[in-house]
Design a protein around this nucleic acid. Structure first.
Length: 499
RNA sequence: GCAUCGGUGGCGAAGUGGCUAACGCGCAGGUCUGCAAAACCUGUAUACGCGGGUUCGAUCCCCGCCCGGUGCUCCA
């Protein structure tokens, strides 16, 4: 089942397959590490994670390169303000970025590429463009790409820039450029700024050249897929195409994927709007990392997603349903089931699970329709629960159902509860950063008891119930409830969970 | 202004030229329970922005309009 993924370049869903028949070579624009990432940033990385996980699920090997922009205007400005060398400044935020990815269970790319570690390759590319007559140096020592040398400019974002006559409305001299739209390849060093001494002069790379150089370094001059947020389509990706294809004469990326924006409370996130959230903000509010992950990937990547706390609550509850279901399957002794009736049932359970699996994969094959994929699994959950309630589920049915859940979790990765760790780390961080005042009381309460302490109390309650000391049992129950711990009594024993 | 995406039940969100318009959350009832909770089941809702057109038939295609988002500058 080949994935058909919408290709911005062709304007339609195209099959996505490795050109070399071995591994899918993909490049994804990573973060600029000048601050903590916000959840809008992470939506992009999460959707790319869904892509790579689904490719793997369908047997496609992936070679995924992600850049880290660790030098740019904002970094230089912020590092100077903090009185730190940019390397020290960015290291902190790069580490935070990876911690956040871990919390969200975003897989690491096969290759991380830091801009500052690839300066020579960028310089080479600028030189190559100069030889091709597409790059020129201005008086201050900066280098620009001559847009006029690449007639196909605009093919990705479908912009027709031919109507924009240079010089007509723009004072060319003011820009020191041949054309106002020419973009910087290399920025001349200003006094005191971080810079590199290179054959093309002292300075630092422009943003666009960075990605072109590093993509080619690790993936070759032509590769399968380039991905990023929708805002990068223009001008960043357009510029990458222009400079790369001018330099090599080959198609740069065959396929372009753009993840659409996340809105918060109906608007684009911005600090001034007060709807700006980092992952850490949300963890401190008591939301679980898994809920954030599910919420951000449940809406297909080509739709804008309106992020609200309600969406997180919905995701939290939906995950609870899945986890409870999984626990029920694995934690119950099902009858071995040998009756002819049972045999008939088993067949239908197996069929149902297979159908769910098939629908799940088909939905994701269709331009990563995560909403529909999710629905296929919930259909299965309800149906199996019904059978289980009716006593029509046997032990040998379980594996095939679990396989369907495994497929789901190979991509969604929310069923296994690993939420304690990110929350604990967020708390630690809040302590160090002096932000304990932002911590939700529920989160603190939830952290108050260790698993062992909870187990002990649960055991004590069970004893109390046995001797019909309901007062004590209820006292423990309500004590635990205060700490965000829910007790679930059932025929198969007691289960507890952190709310 | 130009471009682009969207407007589906209380909320989020799929999807389809004709078949009961998914799924999740919420809500209600039931089962279970020492009582609860949790869990599960069932049910729930006059839901396809408005007006034209094409068609035997449109929520789905075309045109116009209204509303909202985003891009056109750094930005995932």
């Amino acid at each position: 089942m080949t994935l058909r993924l919408f290709n911005t370049l062709s304007g339609q869903p195209d099959p996505l397959t490795p050109a070399d028949g071995k591994a899918l070579r993909m490049y994804a624009c990573g973060p600029t590490v000048y601050d903590y990432g916000h959840i809008g940033n992470f939506r992009t990385f999460l959707e790319i994670d869904v892509l790579r996980r689904f490719l793997r699920l369908t047997g496609v090997a992936v070679r995924h390169v992600m850049n880290i922009t660790d030098v740019d205007d904002k970094i230089i400005r912020n590092a100077a303000a903090a009185g730190l060398p940019i390397g020290e400044y960015t290291a902190r935020y790069e580490q935070a970025f990876f911690e956040d990815l871990d919390a969200l269970r975003v897989e690491r790319p096969e290759q991380i590429a830091r801009a500052t570690e690839h300066i020579p390759r960028m310089v080479e590319l600028v030189e190559r463009l100069e030889r091709a007559g597409a790059a020129y140096k201005t008086e201050d020592g900066s280098w620009y790409f001559r847009l006029a040398s690449f007639p196909a400019y605009g093919k990705l974002s479908k912009k027709d820039l031919s109507g924009m006559e240079d010089g007509a409305r723009v004072d060319v001299d003011e820009y020191e450029k041949d054309s106002a739209r020419d973009f910087a390849l290399w920025k001349a060093a200003k006094p005191g700024e971080t810079s590199w001494d290179t054959p093309i002069g002292r300075g630092r790379p422009g943003w666009h050249i960075e990605c072109s150089a590093m993509a080619m370094e690790y993936l070759g001059e032509s590769f399968d897929l380039h991905a990023g947020g929708e805002d990068l389509m223009f001008p960043h990706h357009e510029n990458e195409i222009a400079q790369s294809e001018t330099a090599t004469g080959k198609q740069f990326a065959r396929h372009w994927m753009h993840v659409h924006f996340l809105l918060a409370d109906g608007r684009k996130m911005s600090k001034s709007e007060g709807n700006f959230y980092t992952l850490r903000d949300l963890l401190l509010k008591g939301f679980k990392a898994s809920a954030i992950r599910l919420a951000l990937i449940s809406v297909p990547y080509r739709h804008q997603l309106n992020f609200t706390f309600d969406v997180l609550t919905e995701a939290t509850n939906a995950i609870e349903r899945l986890r409870t279901f999984h626990h029920r399957l694995t934690g119950t002794k099902w009858p071995e089931g040998a009756s002819s009736q049972m045999v008939g049932m088993n067949l239908s359970v197996a069929e149902e699970a297979e159908t769910a699996r098939k629908k799940f994969r088909e939905a994701l094959s269709n331009d990563l329709n995560t909403a529909e994929a999710r629905a296929a699994i919930f259909d299965l959950v309800r149906s199996i629960n019904t059978k289980a309630d009716a006593g029509a589920l046997a032990q040998q049915d379980i594996p095939v159902i679990l396989e369907a859940l495994q497929d789901f979790d190979a991509v969604f990765d929310v069923i296994e509860d690993r939420d304690a760790e990110p929350s604990r780390r967020a708390l630690e961080w809040a302590e160090q950063a002096g932000r304990m005042d932002e911590v939700a009381p529920e989160l603190l309460a939830r952290q108050a008891l260790s698993d062992e302490q909870v187990e002990a109390l649960v055991a004590e309650r069970t004893q109390a119930k046995k001797r019909r000391d309901f007062a004590r049992a209820d006292q423990i129950r309500s004590e635990l409830a205060d700490k965000g711990i829910v007790i679930e009594d059932s025929k198969d024993g007691v289960r507890w969970k952190r709310k």
